[in-house]
Amino acid sequence: MSRLHFIWLGPLVTLAAVISYFMVFAAIPALRDFPWLNLPLALLGVALSLAGLFGAFGQGRRLASKIFGILGTLLSVGFLGLFGFYVFVLSYQMPTGETAAGVSRIENFSLQTHRGESFDLASFDGRKVVLVFYRGYW
């Protein structure tokens, strides 16, 4: 395999790293909480792109290789950047929850279930309750 193959392999690996995080590995807590698999894979993609880029600027390479080498590297770095932004910045963007931290008791409430039935929290009185709030829009 010529180093020039890395020019297209690099962005492909980076993109696969990002997409497979959301499609597959986000369902596995150990690989979701910190992307132990997908982040190294995305970095590998960028490394491949750089290897391809240096190959493209070797002796006797065509101008097209150089252009594709640059574009491929920009793509790889772009995918990695978006993924890193999502993981390390975007997912921390939410209110601090100070009020929620001070809640010591949940008064009874009544809400509709997803089936449209009415539900009273008090119907579970006498049992412990694990009350889970989701971002929703499943």
């Binding site: 949940i106 009185d125 412990k128 309750v129 889970v132 709030f133 929703g136």
Partner: peptide, 18 residues
């Protein structure tokens, strides 16, 4: 939307863990 949160309530709906 709601931010994610989990509360554990005891039998009297007092929050024992969050």
């Amino acid at each position: 939307i709601s931010r994610p949160a989990v509360f554990i309530l005891d039998e009297q709906r007092d929050v024992t863990w969050r």
